Amino acid sequence: MKIKEILDFLQTARIPFSFTGDPEREVDRFSSLSHYREGSFTWIKKQENIPLGMDLTGLALVFVAEDVDGGNAPNVIRTPESKHAFFSSIEHFYAQPEERPAVGQFTYIGPRVKLGRNVRIGHNCTLDGDITIGDDTVIWNSVVLLNRVTVGSRCDIHSGAVIGHDGYAYTEDAGHHKVMVKHFGGVSIGNDVLIGENVCISRGTIDDTVLEDGVKIDALGHIAHNCWFGRNAAMPVPCSVSGSVHVGENAYLAGDIIRNQCTIGENAFVGLGAVVVKDVAPGQTVVGNPAKPFIKRKREEYAIY
């Protein structure tokens, strides 16, 4: 295909970009920068990602971020959304639709389950209770949805996820005999949500556990009862989020432990492996155990021994 076709797609997708080069140049594949194949288009994420001594004149087409020097590459798409532009182009031109049955083998779908249009459900799944699944949602293999779960449209629930069981909560008497608390809430999942492999999401005790539109949860994470994740919040590596935690819009949790009833403000960033024991303000970055605000120091402030 010609570069012009990619430019037309980016315009249609409303991805901002500028282009220098020859739109009539042919490209016939895509490749990574480190294993570049002749005639393909590729992506330079950061300047330091360019292999030492690499001749950029040999690149048929390159996507670059605004702060990356494309050097002497003959055809350059420059965009503030370089990753999105590059991978969206790959998917648009090269992804092949999967032929999958509507419902896989050995899957149980209860009588109260409501399925939207073009829903796909894998093998060995259990959907049992007041379950509603929106249009174009894909549920992979060995997924369990129980009690009361609502899933929006265009969601992707990966294999092994368990959604809707009662959470871990108990009452006890003076002798410390524990009785588990019966849950009556559900789980409400918005549109365009990703639930990774083997994620566990507990239903609420009275109100629902909620994941709003665009939330992305990576594999092996745990979200306890009564939690609320705002729009486009992300949990990219396994986290343990205790009960009644409120995660704000576009917040980012990276492999953390979050104490119950904490609030993570919108656009906050919780660094890798942090243990959060108190609220995180909107837009704040916290790191460490216990998590504290991250302060970037100038180099001269560090003592040298």
Rank of each mutant, 00 (worst) to 15 (best):
M1V: 10
E301A: 09
S88G: 09
N289Q: 10
Y36K: 08
S18I: 10
D136W: 05
V215D: 06
R78Y: 01
R203N: 07
D218K: 11
I6D: 02
N141A: 06
D28A: 10
E212Y: 08
H123M: 08
F294A: 10
Y252D: 10
Q284Y: 11
I258Q: 00
R37H: 08
R37F: 02
E212P: 00
A254P: 04
I257L: 14
A65S: 15
T20W: 02
F294K: 07
V270N: 00
V280W: 00
P293V: 05
N141S: 10
R117M: 11
G71A: 07
N250F: 09
F19K: 14
G152V: 01
T263R: 12
A274F: 06
A161G: 14
C155S: 01
G104K: 01
P290D: 06
K296N: 11
G71R: 03
A303Q: 13
S34F: 12
I131Q: 00
L7G: 02
T20D: 12
A174G: 15
R37P: 00
A85P: 00
G164D: 13
M54W: 00
T107E: 02
E300D: 14
L194C: 08
G58M: 09
E38V: 09
T285V: 08
V76Y: 01
Y108I: 05
F229A: 02
H165D: 12
S32G: 13
D128E: 14
N124W: 11
V113P: 04
N72V: 13
L52W: 03
S188M: 06
A303G: 14
V215H: 11
T79A: 02
K178V: 05
I3K: 04
L127C: 08
Y94A: 09
T150A: 07
V113W: 02
Y252F: 15
D130Q: 08
H84I: 15
F87W: 10
V193P: 06
G243F: 01
H123Y: 09
I6G: 05
R154G: 04
K178Q: 15
D256C: 15
Q96E: 14
A73C: 11
E197A: 15
G190E: 10
S88H: 05
F9M: 06
Q47P: 05
K178P: 01
N118E: 15
G71V: 00
R112W: 10
K182H: 13
T107K: 00
L115V: 06
V193M: 11
E24D: 12
D67N: 13
G175I: 08
H176Y: 15
V181C: 11
D166K: 02
Q47W: 08
F30R: 07
T205H: 01
K182D: 11
E91W: 00
R299F: 04
G243S: 07
K278W: 06
G185E: 14
I157L: 10
